[in-house]
Design a protein around this nucleic acid. Sequence first.
DNA 1: AGAGTAACCGAACGATCGGTCGGGACAAGG
DNA 2: CCTTGTCCCGACCGATCGTTCGGTTACTCT
Lengths: 196, 196
Amino acid sequence: MTTAKRDTYTPETLLSVAVQVFNERGYDGTSMEHLSRAAGISKSSIYHHVSGKEELLRRAVSRALDGLFEILDEEHARVGRAVERLEYVVRRMVEVLTSELPYVTLLLRVRGNTDTERWALERRRDFDHRVAELLKAAAADGDVRGDVEVRLATRLVFGMINSLVEWYRPDARGMGAREVADAVVVLVFGGLRQER
Amino acid sequence: MTTAKRDTYTPETLLSVAVQVFNERGYDGTSMEHLSRAAGISKSSIYHHVSGKEELLRRAVSRALDGLFEILDEEHARVGRAVERLEYVVRRMVEVLTSELPYVTLLLRVRGNTDTERWALERRRDFDHRVAELLKAAAADGDVRGDVEVRLATRLVFGMINSLVEWYRPDARGMGAREVADAVVVLVFGGLRQER
DNA sequence: AGAGTAACCGAACGATCGGTCGGGACAAGG
DNA sequence: CCTTGTCCCGACCGATCGTTCGGTTACTCT
């Protein structure tokens, strides 16, 4: 009745293994042989679950993109003063980056060699533009400094947030996602300089 | 007497072509066939100038690392109040990133699959630690906020600066390196929030 | 002109690439 | 018991990988 447990791979469980290897060796640097060893099944068996290497990539980046776009649909991202919506989006971005870390990591590293990668880059650009408009609105409200070009500021803020995938590791003992989100919000809006 | 001009490749000129292709397709995604087409010479001719694909990578990341480490040797990075040395290093980092853009881009994308890549990652960590100590000193002076952990702040600032390689393009008409450096310094130290 | 050599080439190397194929092991349902 | 379908396997495919090799072109120097 309830989903009968079977001790075999599904496309989803296989994906989690594949994404991990992709992030360690890079997508192009990962062979199906590498994946089969990491998954503990033969190379040909992988094709029983997925159509090929590229489907694994597509599933992974889709998951990351879905997580990001869902942020923009949330109430706090749609209503209220622009600068507050922006702060909410920044905080939620950190949460999604940390909770979906391996998938977002892969997304942020695609270079556009295949159709799948180019599609991912396009959707990423869409998301960036949506956030840029939020920052633009906050600047128009006078809540955000006007002496730095909006497009430039957006890119730099994205750079700071996206760098999470290069160093954040969900250690049990280490810092939590909440702590990182607080730090990002503080630095993005307040800067390094001590106020005294 | 003066270096007689020859219309052929040297290891350096070949490197500039190779790095460009590496950045477009990714190092692993670039074949020697790709390089030979981009350079306009045959695949085997490449081996007349360099020992192989990995030497090109090593030369490229070395150039990037040398540019970064030279910053730390400069006078303004060695003497003076820590927060001012930090600001100088941040500004110079942006200058090096922009002037050596393709080489630093490649450096920031190595994943550690080969000995060369692991060596590059190690030197990068050294540089990061050196800057982290600068930020730590500035915090001890009370010039930088103490409510964000130094290690975390360093990573986020590096994330913002390093993101340059993802979007900065030296357009003749577009924004210059100076403009970007100003914006980075303003945002890193002052944050987004409008002061009024 | 002739010798020497830097620059280059096409062909081929063994290895590995992503992917295919026919079939075996095994559990579920009759 | 036998059938059915899931899950997996070793063997193999043509293509491409980074690299090597023997040889040719073209420039430099004497």
